[in-house]
């Protein structure tokens, strides 16, 4: 069973002193998939990667990577994995080819390393700079070089620890394409941690959300989105009005007022009487026309704008952890 799975964690816990950073975690990842681990800072993502890459031992439980025990067979595990970190970790005083050569030696790749390196350099469009010192490359190029080094020994599993952090949007999108291509072209299983929710949504076949060392939800992006309790309709009004009667409409689960603070009216009562309401509903499509007709029955010109929000990973994350991803980014 373990041999057929890329990664399997059985009841893993990691405790530092009195701090339990991983708490009885179970996880199964199939070969050739792209798996995303989402979680706020200190949730246990890095600790889990350290255990899976054989860098630290679990306090309790077992982890199997590429069919090998990550604790007792860590060298075997490391033969079968590639790793890309959140920061660029390269020897900047050496050339591109020299960096690759060191990696080839660390993985004991024989004479064929140069051919492999050349193929990957051509694939990732770095062939022209192979004799250039790494310190003179752009960040995007350096990231590509890290990918080449991680793939050089044909790993079964590629660990990517927040690989696009700090990159500009275009480089990030480029890396997304590369990650997808690597997965489909080379059949490499990808274990990705990220705090870009759209990244996980765009790339991953399966996602797990980790919080306080525990997996609190897992599944495909579609499955996770289905955990959401309905759609959101956000309506802005020019003027305030009583809305309690709208709760009687079938399919409306909750109404909340957002935007201005409660005492806003006392601050500038004559200037701004606008209002924004958020309706959580079973299905925005089926309820919208009835909702609008009830709102406009007495005042047909009160609606300023309407926004419909379908369930997304952001709302699921918020629902499950009580934290927004932007908050986490701010902390970072």
């Amino acid at each position: 069973m373990t041999e057929n799975l890329a990664i399997q964690c059985k009841g893993i816990s990691k405790i530092y002193g009195s701090l339990r950073v991983i708490d009885n975690l179970d996880l199964v990842i199939k070969y050739e998939s792209i798996f995303g681990l989402l979680g706020p800072n200190g949730a246990g993502k890095t600790s889990l990667i350290k255990i899976l890459t054989g860098l630290t031992k679990p306090t309790k439980g077992k982890a199997y990577v590429a069919g090998h025990d990550a604790d007792t067979q860590s060298l075997k595990v490391r033969e079968n994995i590639g790793w890309i970190s959140s920061e660029v970790i390269l020897d900047e005083s050496l050339t591109v080819m020299e960096n690759i050569h060191i990696q080839a030696r660390l993985h004991n790749i024989g004479k064929g390393w140069k051919e492999k390196a050349t193929n990957l350099l051509e694939y990732l469009e770095l062939k022209d700079v192979d004799q250039k010192r790494v310190g003179k490359l752009s960040t995007g190029m350096k990231k590509k070089l890290e990918i080449i080094m991680a793939l050089l020994h044909d790993p079964k599993i590629l660990f990517m620890d927040e690989p696009t952090i700090g990159l500009d949007v275009s480089t990030r999108k480029l890396l997304w394409r590369l990650i997808k291509n690597i997965n489909s072209k080379y059949g490499v299983t990808i274990f990705l941690t990220t705090h870009y929710i759209e990244e996980a949504d765009a790339l991953c076949d399966n996602i797990a959300i980790i919080n306080n060392g525990k997996i609190i939800a897992k599944g495909s992006p579609t499955q996770l989105k289905s955990l959401s309790m309905g759609d959101i309709i956000e309506i802005s009004f020019f003027n305030t009005f009583e809305f309690d009667h709208l709760l009687k409409i079938e399919g409306i689960l909750e109404i909340s007022q957002i935007g201005l603070p409660k005492d806003a009216e006392s601050i500038k009562p004559d200037i701004d009487k606008s209002m924004k309401l958020r309706f959580r509903v079973n299905s925005a499509e089926t309820i919208l026309s009835e909702l609008i007709s009830k709102i406009t029955v007495n005042n047909s010109n009160n609606i300023e704008s309407i926004k419909i929000e379908k369930p997304n990973l952001e709302s699921i994350f918020l629902q499950l952890t009580g934290k927004r991803f932007e908050e986490i980014e701010t902390v970072r």
Binding site: T53, L55, L75, K76, R78, S85, I89, L106, N108, F159
Partner: peptide, 14 residues
């Protein structure tokens, strides 16, 4: 500090 030791340690290097 640069993380290079980690790069080495995730390879099968003792």
């Amino acid at each position: 500090k640069s993380g290079y030791v980690r790069r080495i340690m995730v390879s099968p290097t003792r």
